[in-house]
């Protein structure tokens, strides 16, 4: 396999990670009352790959 096909093959990983991050960020911005400071969740979501958005969805949304 040459370089371009490889990069194309790995593109979905990047896209899914970005999509998760964007979903989480959009929800965070619209969320009037997150569980904890907003800026902290913002840093979590952007900096920690995959786990950050999951943590936000599970414990940051205060829906439990």
């Amino acid at each position: 396999m040459d370089q371009t096909t490889l990069i194309l093959a790995l593109l979905p990983i990047l896209i899914i990670q970005l999509a998760l991050m964007i979903f989480a960020l959009v929800d965070l911005i619209k969320n009037p009352n997150p569980n904890g400071p907003k800026w902290m969740w913002g840093i979590f979501i952007v900096v920690i790959n995959i786990i950050g958005p999951i943590l936000y969805f599970v414990i940051g949304r205060k829906n439990y």
């Binding site: 999509a19 995959i50 999951i54 969805f57």
Partner: peptide, 21 residues
């Protein structure tokens, strides 16, 4: 509305792709 329908599949797909990659 709580995005579960998006993020749960996303995580499983990621797990599935990362292992072979």
């Amino acid at each position: 509305r709580n995005y579960k329908i998006y993020w749960i599949p996303a995580i499983f797909i990621l797990l599935g792709i990362t292992e072979p990659a």
